[in-house]
Every structure is written in C-alpha cells, then in structure tokens.
C-alpha cells in the first residue's frame, strides 16, 4: 500500500477569487498582517501498489489528467507512507 498526499494549487499569476475574498475578510476582521491568501485542494490517495516509482508515475498522470486542471493549476505529490 502506498499513501500519497496531493496538493493542488493555482498557478502563480492566476487570479484566486476565493483567496482574495478570504484575504480581505481576514484583514477586516483585524488580522492586519495578512499579505496574501491562496486557496488550493488537498487530496489523499491510497494505492494498492508496492512500487513507489511506478506509483509516483501513476499519481503524476492522475494529477495531470484529472486531479488538477493544468490550464490553471499546479500540483505537488508527496508519498507519505508505503509498506
């Protein structure tokens, strides 16, 4: 079994309306130090596999095809546990 965390974030430079709205609200609530907020997705996947390399390639492919929208998003894969 291989467990992986995948972080999907908006590409640098792509407008993040959610982040902007949350950032403004945090400032209004008195958190003056807030410079920037970017909101992304966190996805956990468990794979029935014992080959971390193959799993990595597979996760890469999954992220590229489905989990992230390459037009506007980047992703980062973190393999956290395998046994």
């Amino acid at each position: 079994m291989i467990r992986a965390n995948i972080y999907v974030t908006l590409k640098k430079g792509v407008l993040d309306p959610q982040g902007e709205a949350v950032s403004r609200s945090l400032q209004v609530m008195g958190y003056q130090g807030v410079q920037e907020v970017r909101i992304g997705k966190f996805i956990q996947i468990v794979l029935d596999s014992d080959d971390p390399e193959a799993a990595g390639r597979q996760l890469e492919e999954m992220s590229d095809k489905l989990l992230a929208n390459p037009v506007i998003e980047d992703f980062r894969i973190e393999i956290v546990a395998g046994e």
Binding site: Q18, A21, S25, I39
Partner: peptide, 10 residues
C-alpha cells in the same frame, strides 16, 4: 462573499 471558502463562512 461569492460562496468562497465555504458557503456562509465569511
């Protein structure tokens, strides 16, 4: 607030 973060959250 655009339903951003969670609906009603902000």
């Amino acid at each position: 607030y655009g339903d951003y973060l969670r609906t009603g959250a902000i």
